[in-house]
Simulated scan of single mutants.
Amino acid sequence: MMRFYKVNLPDEQSKITVIRDKILELGEGIGQTIIFVRSRRTAPVLHEALAEHGYAVTLTQGSDRDKLTKDFNDGSIRVLISTDVVARDIDQSKVNLVVNYDLPVKFNKPTEPYNEIYLLRTRFSKGGAVFNLLCGGNDNMIMQKIETHFSHINVTEVPSWNSDDDFKDALEKAGLK
């Protein structure tokens, strides 16, 4: 069973810090991971920030998308940064960590969650965790709407974004520690 978490952060840069120093660094049982971003402009920035710290991450962009998706499904790629396009093509049975760097919103309606895309991102049946990274009032409002729409999903807040112990606890409960 997937565990759902939300993490309130003070700014956008904190998202990279949490992924790098809390989720990936502290998670020992992480198999395959997908980090979803909303914009193709965000993906290379996140990729560079994680690669600079030694993480083997790949991003889906351009003409290599089909090959990268195949390599991810085969297991030769463990951490994939992607927009929503790839969500339909992933072998969900192998993923045990999903990070919503950005929550999905409807095109031209930035205050309305795109619930169908959220479901596609998080439909992975294998146990593990979904971390929703929130930065500000708009993200919190969208997350609240997602929680209301998917009332059967219990989303737990990570108490402190900069506490190793809080992330260790969340990862352990999700079977990733």
Rank of each mutant, 00 (worst) to 15 (best):
G54F: 13
G75T: 09
V98R: 00
G29A: 13
T83V: 05
V98E: 00
E112R: 13
D91K: 11
D164H: 11
T122W: 03
Y101H: 13
A129T: 03
F36I: 03
S160G: 08
R123C: 06
K70N: 08
M143D: 05
V57Y: 02
F131K: 00
G31K: 12
R40W: 07
N154W: 11
F36P: 02
K109C: 06
R41N: 11
S76W: 13
N115E: 11
L120D: 08
L134Y: 03
R88T: 07
D71I: 07
G54A: 10
V130E: 00
M141F: 13
L97T: 13
Q144C: 04
D165W: 02
E112F: 04
N100I: 00
A129S: 10
L50V: 07
M143Y: 08
M143E: 06
D169K: 11
G27F: 03
I142V: 13
T58V: 09
F167N: 02
G75R: 14
F167M: 01
G128F: 08
L134R: 01
P110Y: 11
S160N: 15
P110A: 07
G31Q: 11
V86I: 13
N138R: 15
T69E: 14
A43G: 10
E172N: 14
V85R: 15
G54P: 00
L97C: 15
N108C: 07
P159L: 10
N108M: 08
Q92Y: 13
N96I: 09
Y101P: 00
P44M: 09
A129G: 05
T69W: 01
A56T: 12
M143I: 05
D164L: 03
V98S: 01
T156K: 15
K94R: 12
F124D: 01
S163Q: 12
D91G: 04
I90L: 14
L80N: 05
I30F: 05
D102E: 10
F124N: 00
E52A: 10
V105S: 03
D66C: 05
P110D: 11
K126H: 11
I35M: 10
D64G: 08
L120C: 09
R41P: 06
F131W: 02
S151L: 12
F150R: 04
H149K: 14
F167P: 01
A56R: 15
H53D: 08
V158M: 03
V86W: 00
S151E: 12
I117T: 15
I90T: 07
E116C: 05
R78C: 08
G75Q: 14
A49K: 14
R123L: 04
L171Y: 05
D74Q: 12
V85Y: 15
I142G: 00
F72K: 02
P104C: 06
F107L: 10
V57E: 06
E116H: 15
G29P: 01
N108E: 09
G54V: 07
L103Y: 08
R123S: 09
R38L: 06
R40N: 06
D165R: 06
N140E: 14
E147I: 09
A56V: 09
R65L: 04
N138T: 10
S160H: 15
T69L: 09
D74P: 06
T33M: 10
T60A: 13
N108V: 04
V98A: 05
R123Y: 09
V57K: 04
F131P: 00
R78T: 11
A170C: 09
